[in-house]
Design a protein around this nucleic acid. Structure first.
Lengths: 227, 227
DNA sequence: ACAATATTGTCAATTTATTAACGCACATTT
DNA sequence: AAATGTGCGTTAATAAATTGACAATATTGT
């Protein structure tokens, strides 16, 4: 059983996907699954699944496989989805409003405040959203100690706002602004660069129409029958 | 000069970021840059930048570096941003509407149609959007041959809709539904799994906070923003 | 014009990630 | 209860990605 604090980011990024598939299995009433069968469904190798999971502990049983319920719970715990992190949203434009409805259902995070330069305009259109003015930010953070900021503001203000938020105690950013933030290494940044994502897709489609890109977006992988 | 047809997906994913930085440099009036200086600004190694760029050709000059304008143009060409791909959006909810405004400014893609199960309701709220009913989909695709579909529909319909779209000639998906699509390997899928992204951030923030408390002296590698 | 300096493109070394192999424990069958 | 098969956890092998090193070649300054 490996240590918890030296897990590669690539492994961490696969965990939510495992969780998603396990949740589906649970819904289907499947109570046990082998790494081989899960690998087949997810388009991975059984070896990788076992290795990934064993970064956090041995959750399976020889000759049986993994208990879906138990493994799902374990990953939930590993991802801290049982703990609710207080978060604020900065910039409540079209995208921010779309995300807010998503966030109210998300596990592991609780949206406790929304901020915008022009709160009145937004609240008029969406009376259900309680949007505060940016001027209230300092006071709010001092009182409620949000740990995560969801950044949905124009690129030109993103860096300055991010720095300010760090000084107000924010520890992690979900960054939808189209810039890379330059912050202290102790601050976590998860970028959702939609422009980058779209360009990657465009490249792959163009290239696919001509030739195949190594390691491209194929949804399936050939599975080894080695174990 | 290496071949164009065996480039790793990791390299491809870095190209849009290079492009973003070069565009900024251009705006600042900087006309030349060395791999060393660009690496410093982007938080990468100079070696990686040179290696990445040389997958597509030698754009630099010894003793001089790279011409910003020229390199920017080259990457634009590599990413096919000079070609406009026709795209349609399926599902025009909150997120879809947010993306549509973003898309009308994006290079390399042209949104030529929006579809929803309930087009009237949306068009009433947003008279500027011409949203069609899903029933018009077949006819529209036959006539206008869209190549990319932006999928913003509930998870439970995503797989079925994606398969249908493939049969209508769609070659690539920008998938915002919270499921992994199972399609022919020749079809490109770029997933934007917001839930997964958020869970990754949560994990990293939690882990960072624990490590700090435990006095961990390791320099973190939470995301590609290290400098 | 020529030396000194800068910086690329490429190849080699290193590091990281993935896949395969295998022994052992457990489940299942007879 | 013994025999057989399954499938995990782990270690080893392979593959991929990143970083380092350096010859080649341009630029810059005198």
């Amino acid at each position: 059983m490996k240590q918890n604090d030296s897990v590669s980011l690539l492994v961490v990024r696969r965990l939510p996907r495992y969780y998603r598939f396990l949740t589906e299995l649970k819904k289907s009433g499947i109570v046990r699954i082998s790494s081989k069968e899960l690998a087949r469904r997810m388009g991975l190798t059984a070896s990788q699944i076992r290795q990934d999971l064993n970064c956090f502990g041995g959750f399976g049983q020889q000759g049986y496989g993994y208990n879906v319920d138990q493994l799902s719970d374990e990953i939930e715990r590993i991802l801290f989805l049982d703990v609710s992190m207080p978060a604020i949203m900065i910039g409540v434009g079209n995208l921010g409003r779309a995300l807010s409805s998503f966030l109210y259902e998300a596990k592991g995070i609780k949206l406790i405040g929304l901020f915008d330069k022009n709160p009145k305009h937004i609240t008029e259109l969406n009376p259900d959203l309680n949007v505060m003015g940016i001027t209230k930010l300092d006071e709010f953070c001092a009182e409620h100690k949000p740990q995560i900021a969801i950044l949905c503001i124009p690129s030109e203000h993103a860096q300055q706002m991010a720095s300010r938020l760090v000084s107000l105690g924010i520890k992690g950013f979900w960054n939808f602004s189209h810039v890379d933030l330059h912050l202290d290494p102790s601050i976590c940044v998860e970028n959702v660069h939609l422009g980058d994502s779209l360009m990657t897709l465009g490249f792959n489609v163009h290239t696919q129409l001509k030739d195949v890109v190594r390691g491209g977006e194929s949804t399936e992988k050939t599975d080894s029958n080695a174990d």
